[in-house]
Design a protein around this nucleic acid. Structure first.
Length: 260
DNA sequence: ATGCCGACAGGATGTCGA
């Protein structure tokens, strides 16, 4: 099963780019982030035409996550536990039946957290701690699980072009990196790093300052696999070329293949 | 030291992203 994650930065602005990529990449499951629309305005028909079922946890203007799947989507659950007052649409979970077993997938859109030292940064860390708790609960099922999305965390200095340039940014704070590591330390593995040790492989390039042309990127979109999913991992890659197309998102898709 | 670009809401320009 080919599964993927992509922060599209508005699903409506990216509809043409998204359908073109789906036709060539042909993933079985795609987790989308920053769809920036409500459930009722999500362009489901365009994806259904390509054979996808859609689960949507939307929000007007900001955030919003979705899961597209060629297989049925069961147990569809929005929101992370523990944030009853949190109105941001940043998490959506579903169960996808595979050939041999089920695969639990989650579309993850962690908060940006800038500027550091504000309530936004505190919200980011609290949100990642809620994610860690949910990730711990999922491990108890002892089933293949993939928590995929925009974590807004640069894991290591080798995941950005210039660590000094990002030193003051919420994405590269020691606390942010530790929060991501705490999820991994439960027993989840970064699928990309399980397949590729090359440094300076990015998933995001800013629209500004010619970041794409200069390859000034960062790796912040991650696929975290449970042990049962990692055992079935056969490939993982970043579809970098998508960033060079017309009207691109500032993020590109990351995908992996798991034999479930 | 700051903006650079882009999407959105709304009808000018501010907010947000990373």
């Amino acid at each position: 099963m080919k599964i993927a994650t992509w922060n599209v930065n508005s699903v409506k602005a990216r509809l043409e780019a998204a359908t073109a990529w789906l036709k060539e990449a042909v993933p079985d499951v795609v987790c989308l982030q920053e769809i920036k629309c409500t459930d009722d305005t999500f362009p489901a028909a365009a994806f259904e035409e390509l054979g996808y079922n859609c689960a949507v946890h939307g929000q007007k203007t900001y955030n919003g996550v979705a899961i597209l799947s060629k297989r049925p989507l069961e147990d569809v659950t929005p929101r992370l536990p523990g944030g009853e007052a949190d109105e941001h649409a940043r998490y959506l979970e579903a169960l996808v039946p595979g050939d041999k077993s089920v695969l639990r997938v989650a579309s993850v859109y962690a908060p940006n957290g800038n500027p550091v030292g504000t309530e936004k940064f505190a919200y980011k860390l609290a949100w990642l701690e809620r994610l860690r708790r949910r990730a711990a609960a999922l491990l108890a099922f002892e089933e293949p699980a993939a928590l995929m999305g925009d974590y807004n965390v640069i894991p290591t200095p080798e995941d950005c072009h210039d660590p000094v340039a990002w030193a003051q940014d919420a994405l590269f704070q020691p606390e942010s990196r530790a929060a991501l590591r705490r999820v991994e330390n439960l027993g989840y593995q970064d699928a990309f790093r399980a397949c590729n040790a090359q440094p300076y492989q990015y998933t995001f390039w800013d629209y500004q300052a010619g970041a794409w042309q200069k390859d000034h990127g960062i790796r912040i979109d991650h696929i975290l696999l449970s042990p049962q999913a990692l055992d079935r991992l056969t490939a993982c890659a970043i579809d970098k070329r998508v960033r060079g197309r017309d009207k691109p998102s500032d993020h590109v898709p990351v995908w992996c293949e798991v034999s479930v």
